[in-house]
Structure formats: C-alpha cells, structure tokens
C-alpha cells in the first residue's frame, strides 16, 4: 500500500436549495492520502469546513462499496470520475496527482433537480420502474423455481442488464440528458427472461412513455452512457429496447 499524500485544489458546486442558483467555490486540501476514496476526501473537506464554521458540502452516499447507486458527481467533466466502471465511492485518490485542480459538479439533467450542493433528485428513475419495470406476480403461488428452464447464457445476459445500480450517471453524462440506458437495461432484463415475456409489450410502451414524460432527452447514440456506467452496461440494451418498443407499437 502506498502512503503517498497529495495536495489538491477543489472547485465544488455549492447550491443552497432547489430555488436558489448555485456557484462554484474553491477549497484547498493538504496532505490527502492516496489511499483515500474520493468520498473520504470529501469527508475530510467537510470536517475541515465544519471546524472552520462553514457549511459542509452535501453529497449523497450510502454503501460506499459501489453497489447502492446513491453516490455520484461529475468529476472534471466525467460522471463518477476518470476510472472506468467505478462509482465515486470506489474511486481512489491515487488516480490524482499532487497539485491537481478537481472540479466537482452535481449530475445535471432537467429530470434531476438539484436539492443541495451535489445532491440531486433522481426519483424520475423510480417512476420509470413504477410504470412497468416488474413482472406482475403476487406473492405466493409461484411455480417451482426449476419449472421453466432458462439457458445459462440467457440468464447471464439478463444479469448483465440487471446489474444496473440506478445511479443516474448515464443521464448525467448524456449530452441529451436521456435515460435510455437505464430504461433499456430494465426492459432488456425482463424481456430476455421467459417470465417477463407475457407483459413485454405493455411494459415497453409504459416504460418508454413514462421516460418521455419525465423530461429526459432523446438518445442520439453518443455512447457516453455506456462509457461512464459503473457496471459496464452495454448500449446493446438500448438497441433491444428500441426493438421491443417498435414491436409493441406496430404489433401491440
């Protein structure tokens, strides 16, 4: 393990609440251990700000092991920072150099209103799921788990799509603020599995229409979403959603 430490200049978006407009503030941090995670670096900053009587930076975080999807910010222009397939909590300071200036901005999209500093409201993603991101089975009465054989490869493909943590980095990085990767991943997962087939048409129609209603942009195949996705979800899922939606529209 390294014990290197670095000094940093930070420029962080500070916004009091949804109603006020925000500004960038600059902060200096000295002797940041390279073994720290990005969020621990922010913790150190917040402890410092608190001791100085200043308002600490509000940011979302929870599991800090890259799975809950709560954390996220745009670091030097890239959602979740420079490391591929890494959430902000799993990004370590060793990927930065002494003297670096780091610009930290919230995920920006019309559908993600900023609540405070780096905290945004991503409930639009939940509403997309509520529109149809499920298989309509009640608890009880499910057939035996082995009743429908599912090819291992299909289960793996479904799992690739199901790995989405709903962090919203795809929306934040998309030049159009589109939520196609998020929506496509869920539609894909459920349309690949035989259990999800009966509702596939209704699901595709309902989820796409919910997505449009939330004010997300349209996909122009820029592939930024795939590049920043911490779980490496492929835009192949968007292609699959396109097929599902067109099939449902024309032959629904």
């Amino acid at each position: 393990m390294t014990t290197k430490s670095i000094d940093l200049s930070l420029e962080i978006w500070r916004q009091k609440d949804s109603r006020t407009t925000g500004v960038f503030e600059s902060y200096q941090l000295k002797s940041i251990s390279a073994d720290m995670s990005f969020l621990e670096m922010l913790d150190v900053l917040n402890e410092k700000l608190t001791r100085e009587g200043l308002d600490p930076v509000a940011f979302d975080h929870d599991c800090r092991e890259g799975i809950c999807g709560m954390c996220g910010a745009v670091v030097n222009g890239i959602a979740h920072g420079p490391e591929p397939e890494t959430t902000l909590c799993q990004l370590h300071m060793r990927h930065f150099c002494n003297g670096d200036t780091i610009v930290i901005e919230p995920f920006r999209s019309r559908a993600f209103p900023i609540r405070k500093d780096l905290i945004v409201d991503r409930s639009a993603l939940d509403r997309i799921i509520q529109a149809g991101g499920y298989i309509s089975v009640n608890t009880g009465g499910a057939p035996d788990g082995n009743a429908i054989p599912i090819p291992s490869a299909t289960a793996e493909l479904a799992m690739d799509a199901a790995a989405c943590i709903g962090c919203g980095a795809c929306v934040a990085s998309c030049p159009n603020g589109a939520a196609m990767l998020f929506t496509g991943a869920k539609i894909s997962q459920l349309s690949l599995l035989p259990q999800g087939r009966p509702e596939r048409k209704e699901r595709a129609m309902a989820m796409v229409s919910a997505m449009d209603k939330e004010g997300f942009g349209n996909c122009t195949n820029e592939r930024e979403c795939e590049a920043v996705c911490p779980k490496g979800i492929s835009i192949r899922n968007i292609a699959r959603m396109n097929r599902e939606f067109v099939k449902a529209s024309f032959f629904g």
Binding site: E11, F24, V74, N76, G77, I78, A79, V103, E105, R108, S109, R110, A111, S173, C174, P175, N176, G177, A178, G215, F216, G217, N218, T220, E222, R223, E224, E226, A227, V228
Partner: peptide
C-alpha cells in the same frame, strides 16, 4: 428538445469516449 433536457452545461467539457 435535447438541449432543453440538459438545461445546464458542465463547467468542464470533456467526453468519456
């Protein structure tokens, strides 16, 4: 429409790809 969906730009403009 897409310009409106991303109503605020980022200060640092880079692309991941």
């Amino acid at each position: 429409q897409n310009r409106k969906a991303r109503n605020q730009r980022y200060k640092v403009k880079t692309r991941a790809i």
